[in-house]
Computed example of a mutant assay.
Amino acid sequence: MASSYQIGLTTGMRRGELLGLEWKNVNLEQGTIQVKQTVVYVNKQHIVKEPKTKNSVRTVTVPVSLIDELKKFKSVWKKDRFKVGDKWEGGEYEFLFSSWHGKPMHPSSITTWWNRFEKRYNLPHIRFHDLRHTSATLLINSGVHAKIISSRLGHADIRTTMNIYEHALQEADVEAANKFENLFGVNKKSRGLEA
């Protein structure tokens, strides 16, 4: 079933954006997620507010395999919501990730889930936020244009993406040079130009 870390890794969403994600913002037919709000915890209260910047309000396409998981997750979510009945405290909100009675989750809950997941599968420890960086790095190494990555992450400016992921971009540039080396090396050999 879809988890916060699957969505976090494939979309690059921030933790607060994941906590603020509602079913009305998930389009299972088009395979997109709209990032429209975030949940923060201040003075022992959950506050639903607009994302960090105007560019943080965005639509992100998700992998087809995740859509299938989200469909299963929504079915289970609806059954659980029905069981709660009049004990529901979520009001108008239908958060994907909430407490059993619909209230927003505390931000540390996602971190706790992630830490348990790492231990269960004997993964090296990284912060939950680092999934966002992993998402960007995987896209850079796959040759996705920096402007697309910047848009998926909700950065206000492509320069922010370039600055944060400079090291990964440099590695991708080295790989690009290696591809030329392989290309020219093969051509030289095939043309008998090798010394």
Score class of each variant (00 low, 15 high):
62 V>T: 06
171 E>D: 07
195 A>D: 05
158 I>S: 06
191 R>C: 06
24 K>M: 09
129 H>P: 02
32 T>L: 07
64 V>D: 15
31 G>T: 08
132 R>Q: 10
52 K>G: 10
163 N>V: 07
91 G>L: 08
41 Y>G: 03
85 G>F: 08
188 K>C: 05
55 N>Q: 12
163 N>Q: 08
52 K>D: 00
2 A>N: 11
141 N>Y: 11
105 M>P: 08
36 K>T: 15
68 D>K: 14
156 A>L: 03
51 P>Q: 10
39 V>E: 03
95 F>R: 03
135 S>Y: 15
145 H>D: 15
21 L>P: 14
185 G>A: 05
160 T>R: 01
102 G>L: 14
107 P>L: 08
128 F>K: 06
10 T>Q: 06
114 W>D: 01
143 G>S: 02
105 M>A: 11
25 N>S: 10
140 I>N: 01
38 T>P: 02
179 K>D: 12
134 T>I: 03
138 L>V: 10
111 T>D: 08
117 F>S: 04
140 I>R: 03
65 S>R: 07
144 V>Q: 05
60 V>I: 14
56 S>E: 04
36 K>C: 12
167 H>Q: 03
123 L>F: 12
47 I>Y: 04
180 F>M: 14
155 H>Y: 07
17 E>M: 04
190 S>C: 00
193 L>D: 04
182 N>D: 13
8 G>I: 02
176 A>L: 10
79 K>C: 10
33 I>Y: 14
157 D>A: 00
108 S>I: 10
23 W>C: 06
100 W>H: 00
115 N>C: 10
191 R>A: 15
164 I>Q: 11
160 T>N: 00
114 W>I: 07
4 S>Y: 04
78 K>W: 04
117 F>V: 01
184 F>N: 05
57 V>S: 09
126 I>S: 12
168 A>D: 03
193 L>P: 00
40 V>C: 00
16 G>I: 05
41 Y>H: 06
28 L>P: 14
59 T>R: 04
181 E>M: 12
150 S>K: 01
76 V>M: 13
126 I>A: 07
30 Q>P: 08
24 K>G: 04
12 G>F: 11
48 V>Q: 02
173 D>L: 01
16 G>C: 05
42 V>I: 15
179 K>N: 09
4 S>M: 05
20 G>P: 09
130 D>W: 12
74 K>M: 01
107 P>T: 09
142 S>W: 02
42 V>P: 08
55 N>H: 14
8 G>S: 13
32 T>S: 11
105 M>L: 15
174 V>S: 09
